[in-house]
Amino acid sequence: MKITFKVNGESRSVEADPEMPLLWALRDLLGLKGAKYGCGVGACGACTVHVNGRAMRSCAVPLKAVQGDEIRTIEGLGGNHPVQQAWLEEQVPQCGYCQTGQIMQAVALLEKTPQPSSEQIRAGMEGVLCRCGTYPRIEAAVHRAAGAMTTKAEG
């Protein structure tokens, strides 16, 4: 089945099993390796991407559900997104495997809640697991990015 959707602003089509999770279409068919396989059941968040602006677990979203949708992946952030900068300034990642999912989750959180409290950050980031234990730095980096994005918006 041919499925067409937008990835990072570009229209893309794949010929694939409509049940194939978006994750594998991105990684294997479109060569976008930023979203990671971690669990396959939507429980770890390493595969997090945006579907129509919402953070979703791409391992649990079948292709048939994203026909015509707008997908954003870590590759679409451009590399200098305020959240990515905050991640570098706080030196968040260790192994880094979960971090693309963390960053996409954080971007979605800040787009909805530009000035989150620590409690809101924790609630918003709960779905993405990190085994290296970078949670304290994730929390600090989301606060930092929120500050940077607000300053930018005001400027």
Partner: peptide
């Protein structure tokens, strides 16, 4: 000192074994 491996990880570059692709590869 900033870690040398972090910029690529934050950009989501294919740095892991699972990201390796070879011509004519199967899974």
């Amino acid at each position: 000192v900033p870690r040398v491996d972090l910029p690529a990880k934050v950009r989501g570059e294919p740095v892991f074994a699972s990201d390796v692709e070879r011509p004519n590869m199967v899974y």
